[in-house]
């Protein structure tokens, strides 16, 4: 049976996503973050903690690098001799880039992380055995491992804080890898509602927690397949193509491009789903 299945669908099994596969149907969730609008206020990160039941690990474990912030605000300082606070801080909110060809997916020994039909890089907590190969192979290092059994640790969620835990999201036990999900619980609910009503999810119908909390509206999120959505228009306007190999066409022009859009580490061919707009570029590192 499995052999006949294999032979019948051979060409389907030999398709390589995303470069010679058909594009996503219906949904392909994507994001863009306008760094020129980002003020580094950390509201997105806080919102993420609240929405996704992230454990608050405390000072000591944070120092040891065992923090669990799915959305982290990175600071980069200008290197021109100025002292703090005039050093020219620049901010970059970093979260899982939901790569179309994610380096983490292929290396997981148990297949706990996979590519979903709506273009997410999913993480199956129940399946994870904690080999941490995914994190080792992630160029962005946006995967967070449960070094301790956080839900049972004191002061991760002090008494009254347990009231704000999100019932739609599971808490993760020790030894499991986790990462940004693009608020998959919200996406699923929106998709279910839409399916019930026999339509597709409208643009703007679903927001991620970070997007919702951003005071400057720097984060845009939506369905890249729908050409009229804000995110699709933005990507199109910046001429950032999802499955472009190595370099975007616009960057290959002589003298580069004046457009602000880019994706991080494009040359690694992970095809990230998050587009950033200007601000931090190599000069600042």
């Amino acid at each position: 049976m499995s052999v006949s299945n294999m032979l019948e669908n051979w060409s389907k099994f030999r398709h390589m996503h995303p470069v010679d596969d058909k594009p996503h149907e219906e949904y392909k969730w994507a994001m863009s973050i306008d760094l020129d609008a980002c003020s580094g206020c950390n509201a997105c990160s806080v919102a993420c903690y609240a929405e996704n039941n992230l454990p608050v690990v405390g000072k000591q474990k944070f120092d040891a690098g065992q923090q669990m912030h799915w959305m982290r605000i990175e600071r980069y300082w200008d290197d021109d001799g100025r002292e703090f606070p005039d050093q020219g801080a620049q901010f970059l909110p970093m979260l899982c880039q939901q790569c179309e060809a994610a380096p983490c997916e292929t290396v997981c020994p148990v297949g706990a992380t996979n590519h979903t039909a709506d273009g997410l890089n999913s993480q199956v907590y129940n399946r994870c055995i904690g080999s941490r190969y995914c994190s080792a192979n992630c160029p962005f290092k946006v995967r967070y491992f449960n070094w301790y059994d956080y839900p049972t640790t004191d002061n991760v969620w002090p008494a009254e804080m347990t009231q704000q835990l999100n019932p739609d999201v599971t808490v993760r036990g020790k030894g499991v890898m986790e990462k940004c999900t693009f608020c998959v619980q919200r996406l699923e609910r929106a998709k279910n509602n839409a399916r019930t009503e026999g339509r597709l999810v409208h643009d703007g119908e679903v927001q991620t927690a970070c997007q919702q909390a951003c005071p400057t509206g720097a984060i845009t999120f939506g369905n890249l397949v729908e050409p009229e959505s804000k995110i699709a228009r933005q990507w199109a306007h910046q001429q950032v193509e999802l499955a472009a190999r190595d370099k975007q066409a616009k960057d290959e022009q002589e003298g580069g491009s004046d457009l602000r859009g880019y994706r991080i580490f494009e040359e690694l061919r992970a095809y990230p789903s998050v587009m950033y707009l200007e601000r931090v570029r190599e000069s600042a590192i």
């Binding site: 904690g130 994190s135 995967r143 967070y144 070094w147 030894g175």
Partner: peptide
Amino acid sequence: QIGMGVANLNNPQVW
């Protein structure tokens, strides 16, 4: 019993 954290591994330094 306690978790892998006691080995003082951390998030980028997972191995």
